[in-house]
Simulated scan of single mutants.
Amino acid sequence: MNYLIQVLVLRWGEGQSGSKNPIQQIKSTITYLKIATYEAVTGIASTEGNVDDDGNGSGSETKYITEDQALKINALIDDNNLDKEAWLKYSKIEHFNELEAHRFGSLMKRINERLAIIATKSQA
């Protein structure tokens, strides 16, 4: 496995732009491969792959969703008998009121996409 990662790091990292040093290139490639593998295995887009801002958000205060938004997520999950623990784990939080505000729209989109898949399968 380590050999495979080394080969992929060397091949994939060759064309990278920017001023990354070799250690940063390796770390970026490994992170990318972990995210891509997770998405391929689960069929669910990871949140990690969607929030990388190359450090541009560092230092700013984190804003969380409102109580109404948390209730909306909970209701959507409960009303459709979805696995709340799985969605919390997917979101890397313990309670939906811990969800960062900028992630609310993408989480709602993912839940609704999942419901559409379930509906399609139940009609078949």
Rank of each mutant, 00 (worst) to 15 (best):
L107M: 08
L76M: 07
Y90S: 03
T62Q: 13
K27M: 10
K121P: 01
S17T: 08
I23D: 12
S122E: 08
L99V: 05
G57S: 12
T37V: 06
K34Q: 12
L99N: 01
K92A: 14
D53C: 13
W12Y: 06
I93Y: 10
A86M: 06
P22V: 04
Q6Y: 09
A101M: 13
R103S: 11
S60V: 09
I111M: 03
W12P: 00
N97D: 08
D54V: 04
Y3D: 14
N80C: 07
P22A: 12
D68G: 05
G43Y: 09
E100V: 13
E100Y: 14
D54I: 03
G57Q: 11
N80L: 08
T37W: 04
S28H: 08
K84F: 02
L76F: 03
Q16Y: 13
K84Y: 03
R103Q: 13
G55D: 10
Q25P: 00
G15Q: 06
K92Q: 12
A45L: 10
Q69A: 12
V41D: 04
I117R: 09
A116Q: 10
F96H: 01
I73K: 00
A116C: 03
V9A: 14
K63Y: 11
R110H: 02
W87F: 09
E39G: 02
T120G: 02
S46K: 05
E98M: 10
L82D: 03
G49D: 07
G15Y: 05
A101Y: 13
D68Y: 09
A119D: 05
Q24V: 00
L8H: 05
I73F: 01
A45I: 04
A101H: 10
I35Y: 05
L8V: 05
D52I: 04
E14V: 01
L8T: 03
G49I: 02
L4E: 12
E39M: 07
S46L: 14
D53A: 14
L82F: 03
D78F: 06
S46R: 04
L82K: 05
K63M: 12
A124E: 02
G49M: 07
E85D: 14
E98T: 03
I30K: 11
T120I: 04
L10V: 03
G49S: 06
Y38G: 01
S17F: 06
A40D: 08
K109H: 07
K20F: 11
